[in-house]
Simulated scan of single mutants.
Amino acid sequence: MPRRREGRLVGLEVDILGAGIELQADDGDFYGFALAKRLADRAGATALTAHGTLYKALGRLAERGLVESEWEDPGIAAEEGRPRRRLYRVTGAGVVAYRAETEQRTALAPNPRTAFA
């Protein structure tokens, strides 16, 4: 597992924020299974080895204020005959952190035209 540099996000956390921002644009918030599905569908995403990994990363992001969550209204779940879901949202700070991290990673990536010149 990659070591965290102070203040930086690891690959899975960046992938979660990116997928969360996409899901949020469609539905306003998202839940863990939808997020896992989106991550699996994204090309080049960090491998998700288990759902426990996803929820641990969501917990770390929540501790840093990059995502927030709340439990779904019990009435909605009951109407659909399923358990309640925890709903997540990427915060403004999460969007800023995602953009900063992706910009920094892009800037540090070698240029394929000059990498082997």
Rank of each mutant, 00 (worst) to 15 (best):
L58T: 05
A107C: 06
T49L: 13
A47P: 10
R8K: 14
Q24T: 03
L23M: 05
A93I: 02
R89M: 07
D27S: 12
E101M: 09
D41H: 11
G7N: 09
E80V: 07
R60H: 13
I76M: 07
A19Y: 01
L58Y: 02
R38Q: 15
P110W: 07
N111M: 07
T53K: 11
A36R: 12
V96M: 10
N111Q: 10
L9A: 03
A97I: 00
E68S: 12
M1I: 10
E79P: 00
L23S: 00
A40P: 00
G52L: 10
G44W: 07
A109I: 08
N111L: 10
T91Q: 05
A115G: 07
N111R: 12
T46C: 05
T102L: 11
E70W: 13
A25I: 04
P74H: 07
T46V: 14
N111S: 13
A19H: 00
R42V: 09
W71P: 08
P2W: 07
Y88M: 02
N111V: 08
G28M: 04
G20C: 05
T53P: 02
G18K: 10
A34P: 01
F116Q: 15
I21A: 14
I16D: 00
G92Y: 02
W71C: 09
A97S: 09
K37L: 14
T53M: 12
F116W: 15
G44Q: 06
L17W: 00
V10W: 05
R84H: 03
Q24K: 03
R4H: 11
L61Q: 02
V14G: 03
R64Y: 03
Y31D: 12
T46S: 14
P74I: 04
E103R: 14
A107R: 15
R113W: 14
G65T: 06
V10T: 11
V67G: 01
L23G: 00
G7A: 08
D27V: 06
L48H: 07
D27F: 11
A19N: 03
Q24P: 01
G18T: 07
T106D: 13
I21S: 13
G18W: 08
R113E: 14
N111G: 03
G44L: 05
G18Y: 08
R86G: 04
G94K: 02
A115W: 13
L17D: 01
S69L: 03
G65W: 08
D29M: 13
T91I: 05
D15Q: 02
R38T: 11
T53H: 11
D27L: 09
A77V: 03
A62K: 12
A109Y: 07
A100M: 11
L12N: 01
H51E: 15
L54P: 04
G44M: 06
A45S: 15
T114I: 14
D15W: 00
D41Q: 15
M1Q: 10
G11Y: 06
A107L: 10
R5P: 08
S69V: 01
A97V: 03
Y98S: 04
R38C: 07
G92W: 06
P74W: 04
